[in-house]
């Protein structure tokens, strides 16, 4: 189990090992009797960031929650790794709620996973990660004394502390202001390099900034289109010309999908 031998080398950047891709073959889910997706095939490439872009209510969060094992698909399909092995315990999950526990200080929040698994807390690594996200010196503060951006950075440090090969993010920066979001995107792109990241978002710019691969999810029941791979490496500069071109293409795809959806 990668990452579980905490304490053996606290200063190594990462212990997650070889990147793992994942598959979700033919997954079906309905909500209130309305199918969100039926027989949807999902393939996520190892070691890169895949963004799933879609309108609210299309089922992208539900898809991510199935990947995370938080909800079960109607047909019982579970996410498996490249080689067909189950992914249990290999995913870290982060969403727009920072979900910091108010009774634990920042440091204890970051090492929550080890606490829950009764592993050595490895606070050296937690401190190092907090320094990486710019929160050195705030280790002993309670979450309610932090700003929204700081809370989300703490959540990012906690996600990295998990040191899982797969990171699942559900609109992770949706609740912070745009400047903070811009900085957080750069920070997370840097810190998550080399991991398999699935990031769900409704913001085309965020997808373009962070995704190696971008899928548009749309329709009822929803489908995923073939991935768009914008040129350059994340985090991309939003003022870049190539990115603007991709933005146009992405908007065209989204618009096309929505007219298709309206026609049905």
């Amino acid at each position: 189990m990668p990452g579980s031998q905490a304490g053996q080398s606290p200063f190594k950047e990462s212990e997650h090992g070889v990147p793992v891709g994942l598959r979700l073959p033919g997954v079906s889910l309905s909500h209130d009797g309305r199918p969100l997706f039926t027989g949807l095939d999902v393939r996520i490439e190892a070691g890169v960031t895949t963004c799933i872009l879609g309108a609210s209510g299309v089922g992208k969060s539900s898809l991510l929650r199935i990947l995370a094992g938080l909800i079960a698909a109607d047909n019982g399909v579970e996410a498996v790794g490249d080689h067909g092995a189950p992914l249990t315990g290999q995913c870290a999950y982060m969403d727009q709620r920072d979900s910091l526990l108010p009774w634990l200080d920042v440091l204890a929040n970051v090492s929550l996973g080890n606490r829950l698994r009764r592993r050595p807390l490895n606070q050296e690594r937690a401190r190092k990660l907090l320094a990486e996200v710019g929160l050195a010196g705030r280790e002993r503060d309670l979450p309610q004394t932090l700003s929204g951006g700081m809370r989300q950075r703490t959540a990012l440090a906690r996600t990295l502390m998990e040191d899982k090969p797969i990171v699942l993010m559900d609109e992770p920066f949706a609740s912070v202001d745009s400047i903070t979001r811009h900085r957080l995107q750069a920070l997370s792109a840097r810190l998550l390099t080399g991991r398999t990241v699935v990031l769900v978002t409704h913001d085309p710019l965020e997808a373009l900034r962070l995704g190696h691969r971008i899928h548009v999810m749309s329709g009822h029941p929803a489908t995923l289109d073939t991935a768009l791979s914008p040129p350059g490496l994340p985090p991309r500069d939003p003022t870049d010309d190539a990115l603007r071109q991709s933005y146009g293409e992405l908007l065209a795809r989204l618009a096309q999908e929505s007219t298709n959806g309206a026609g049905q």
């Binding site: 938080l70 315990g89 870290a92 999950y93 709620r97 979900s99 929550l112 829950l116 698994r117 998990e162």
Partner: peptide, 11 residues
């Protein structure tokens, strides 16, 4: 959110 987080951490 806390329960979701803890559930993925203890999967």
């Amino acid at each position: 959110g806390w329960v979701d987080l803890a559930a993925t951490m203890t999967a």
